[in-house]
Design a protein around this nucleic acid. Structure first.
Lengths: 338, 338
DNA sequence: CTGTTAGCGCGTTCAA
DNA sequence: TTGAACGCGCTAACAG
């Protein structure tokens, strides 16, 4: 009765059914060439004994673990639950489990994820790298399991990749310019983040519209957080020549900016239009609701896992680089609601 | 060069170093009784060959996988990232990984998690059950790995448990009553959720204050969502005798209620005070910020994992039932900001 | 202090 | 169609 921890093995089944364990093995793996009679008999015994194969032993043989890892910087970032959810969905559909790893954007931890790949019971890794260390490439090459990357990396990465066809920033900037804003400011974190593409989009968009870059309109805080946004708002309001629009490096910053502006008595979007990036769920909860650019995070998670599973299954195809088109979502922080 | 997938084994190391593999085993497990000289030599070879032990084989022997599962209903619920994060932290500190499972509050899926425990590479399960099926108890008894429960269950659950010392609802209701509100409404989902404790707190608190229960002040939607909150707001505003306070079953509902009320031209908290439960991060982003009751979700996650790891390590101690005290957090949706 | 040996539970030849 | 035997890579006795 109290055999809580005792596991019934394939041998127990074989003995009980009066067959060899290889026969049982064939049956649990749906292998052909087993007389229906035998199959039925053994199946009954399996039910009866409540046998389930020991995956550890099986993995040792097959070298397949039916698990993949999802390595992101911090699940608490509102950006990720959608991603993790989508990834887990696809994994589950294929009878894989998902191991969650937070690497905190710490370059060494990001690398450790790959290096420790074989120390984990995983058949592959979905990695979203923030810092994108230069050593990533060689490390992936040496990895014992395939890696699927989310984000935009160099073309030479030896991994399947799903990213955006162009920086979300261009859509955000285009939008601000198109609604007639002329003094557009940038609020973000260190420019190295996201490999600078979000900031680069700022400079390039300005140039493309023949607007000159005003360094005083660039605010960079420590992290992409609400606090940074609020500091940015205070900073911009202190300027003699206030911006009439702010392009924030992500929604958290955008929301902080909006709160900061409103606390200082400014109206959004009338006085200052604000646009963010990521389209996190919070965008729809604030007042005004935040215009943002969606990078289709759930879609990326889904595709990244699909690519990974495909490669685990068959690893000799050329690497695929999937590009998604970011999508502008106009809400109330840039255009007065009708 | 292109040996990406080939793994060097303990035998390779042994051969290369000219020792027996048991010696290598001792070294990688930091077992005592190895001459420093030998240890150094072998260590060098390990480095050189880039050997890392095959965990599958090790697990097969030790029956320890160094992985635990975290089963919650849906990671997209804003309530959970904190929990998942805390759980992963503790796991990582103990050199365990965390497998994420969404069971969608689906009773059968909740049960399947436990039933499939041995089909997963996990040493234990942290389970947060929403529906709390009656068959949970016997299933946990039969499980092959220990289970650690988050939430409030019966005292007879054969598992370590971390829950709250009393329903968060009492704190919320106390608060509303104490700030002088007399017509307090309830907005939530099906009363069966959370085993009804959040609604029960509503009735009991009213009774304890000698306020009579008015059925017209109880609104129950389909799910605990923003939409439900907005519907509730519209419903309550349509009443001839409007409530002056609303106790929402969770923060999502509370935020929806607030949005709904404000769209209808009511002031929060002046006309109607609103309090939620869970203290999700969003509470601090809205305007007004939402008063809520924190159930210390990160703390619960941390403790649940600690209890689980302790039991994995030593399974014969009596089950521990940890109770945490929920905490009221007063923000702007109940008391006018100073 | 180190080597030899025997499994852990399963999949997979190869014979029968 | 089935069975016997071997080995995946590792740990854990037991010798030496």
């Amino acid at each position: 009765m109290e055999q809580k921890k005792s596991k019934v093995t394939i041998d127990d089944v074989a003995k009980e059914a009066g067959v060899a364990k290889s026969t049982v093995s064939r049956i649990i793996n749906n292998a052909p060439g087993v007389k229906p009679i035998t199959r039925q008999k053994v199946t009954r015994v399996i039910e009866q004994l409540g046998f389930t194969p020991n995956l550890m032993a099986r993995s040792l043989k097959t070298n397949l673990r039916r698990q993949i890892a999802l390595a992101i910087d911090d699940i608490r970032n509102p950006y990720y639950p959608e991603l993790a959810w989508a990834a887990e969905q696809v994994a589950k559909q294929n009878d894989f489990r998902l191991v969650l790893i937070n690497h905190y954007g710490n370059p060494s931890e990001e690398l450790a994820v790959i290096r420790d790949a074989n120390d984990m019971h995983v058949d592959g890794i979905v990695l979203l790298s923030i810092s994108h260390p230069k050593t990533l490439n060689p490390l992936i090459k040496k990895a014992t399991v395939p890696v699927s990357l989310i984000g935009n990396y160099g073309e030479d990465m030896p991994a399947d990749t799903v990213g955006l066809s162009r920086s979300e920033g261009y859509l955000a900037m285009d939008h601000l310019i198109r609604i007639g804003r002329r003094r557009i400011a940038y609020a973000g974190g260190p420019v190295t983040l996201h490999r600078g593409t979000r900031y680069a989009a700022y400079e390039k968009s300005l140039a493309a519209s023949f607007m000159k870059l005003d360094r005083s309109l660039v605010f960079t805080g420590e992290r992409l957080s609400l606090e940074t946004g609020m500091e940015a708002a205070r900073y911009f309001c202190g300027l003699k020549d206030r911006p009439d629009a702010i392009y924030a490096a992500n929604d958290l910053v955008a929301i902080g900016v909006i709160q900061g502006l409103m606390e200082l008595g400014l109206r959004v979007p009338e006085d200052v239009a604000v646009v963010g990036i990521d389209d996190i769920p919070w965008c729809m909860l604030t007042n005004p609701k935040v215009s943002s650019v969606s990078n289709l995070v759930a879609e990326m998670g889904r595709i990244a896992v699909e690519l990974l599973l495909k490669r685990i299954d068959q690893s000799d195809e050329p690497f695929r680089k999937v590009k998604l088109e970011p999508r502008l979502i106009v809400r109330e922080s840039t255009v007065k609601s009708v």
